[in-house]
Computed example of a mutant assay.
Amino acid sequence: MRFGLLDRYILKIAAGAAVILLVGLTSVIWVTQALREVDLMTGKGQTILIFFTVTLLSLPALIAGIAPVALFMATLYTLNKLNSDSELIVMNAAGVAPHRLTRPFIALTLITAALVGWMSLAVMPAGFRALRDLITLIRADFVANVVKEGQFVSLDSGVTFHYREKQGQALLGIFMQDRRDPNQPAVYIAERGQSAEADGNSFLMLEKGTIQRESRNQNSSSIISFERYALNLSALTGDSDGGAGGGDGDKVIYKPRERTTWALLRQDKNEPYYKIQEGRFRAELHNRLSAPLYPIAFMLVAFAILGEARTTRQGRAAAIQIAIFLVGAIRIGAYAAWTASVRSPIAAALLYILPLGTILLAALAIGFGSRTRVLVDRLTEPLIAPFLALAARFRRA
């Protein structure tokens, strides 16, 4: 694709608007999320470096979600600016076909789609996995260094931790109650313990103690004595996926969003956690694979509706509203399809049908050119007619 002066001019406007919108929207949302993590410093005694690391690991997910919207808004802004400055009218008068103007937008869209694909397929899973490991280390540091001696502190929903006193790096008189599973509560008691790390996991090494387990379904209980016991602190990360935190106490089981795309494609069907959460694995994989299609669909919708020159600001405002409504409907439909695909494999196909169908229809609308503009005008006329009549009444008055 060879770019001329006109293409570079339009691309400069659209790319500048897209970057500003992406940075601005991402920054605002990131700040609101970062404020919710202030407890890392105030309540868990972590450094500002850990605070920023935890919050920055959420940026790939924000960028992947905001980039298509930023591209859509940048396309609307660019086309509206060209029309307001009468540049679209001049281009049409000079014989420039409307579909010819799509070239700079297509170039920007391909860059955005590549960015979204890279974030969704590679960066996001790595970020979530790193965040999971970091939270585990924070939890270990919280247990060993932040919990005050003699205090009963709730580490998570259903988990209570206490130690009598601290001697060097060792904790003496340890008590922990784990009631996250109401049907199988457990109580850990040990004379001493010390945090340790192995194979990327954090453990609390307990010495000379007992584990009391109760099975309320079977109405039975058991007490196990031990000399040394490694308590995996990864199990205290607060997962709500029914075992994603390491149900066997020895190994961290990563959730679908924390696994690489290649791992999801080559998923072991016999894995116990996969059998429990098969729908989530399916939804996560198809959501990642379909993500790069939405920037293309959003841009084409904006261009199909606003790519033609217009002489009335009112009609253009109504057309912008229609474009926003269509993109909002597509985004909501994609979210509904993603949610439904957890339960139905057929619903996963909608994640591809929605953007591909939109791309096809929008491309046809761009090909029809002026006919599409006439159709949009007919649809928007009932919306703007009351406002035009009100304006005329004020002029007569």
Rank of each mutant, 00 (worst) to 15 (best):
D239L: 11
Q167G: 00
T311V: 02
F387H: 13
S215W: 09
I50W: 03
W30F: 13
V374P: 00
V153K: 03
L375T: 14
V19L: 14
S157Y: 04
M1Y: 12
I10E: 06
G168Y: 12
S86N: 15
Y9V: 07
Q321V: 11
N145W: 05
E165A: 13
A107K: 13
E207C: 02
R343H: 11
L364G: 08
K251P: 01
L233C: 10
A122G: 10
K269P: 13
A94R: 12
E271D: 15
S27A: 15
R139L: 08
L88S: 11
I296A: 08
G65L: 03
E191L: 10
K81M: 11
G150N: 01
G247C: 02
L356V: 11
A336M: 13
M124F: 07
L110G: 12
Y9A: 07
R213Q: 09
T112K: 01
L62I: 03
L22M: 07
G243Y: 04
A34V: 08
V342M: 09
I211T: 08
Q267M: 14
L350N: 03
N145K: 14
R313Y: 05
Q151C: 03
I353N: 06
T339P: 02
Y188T: 00
N270F: 11
A283M: 05
T112H: 00
F368P: 00
A323P: 12
S84H: 11
L35I: 12
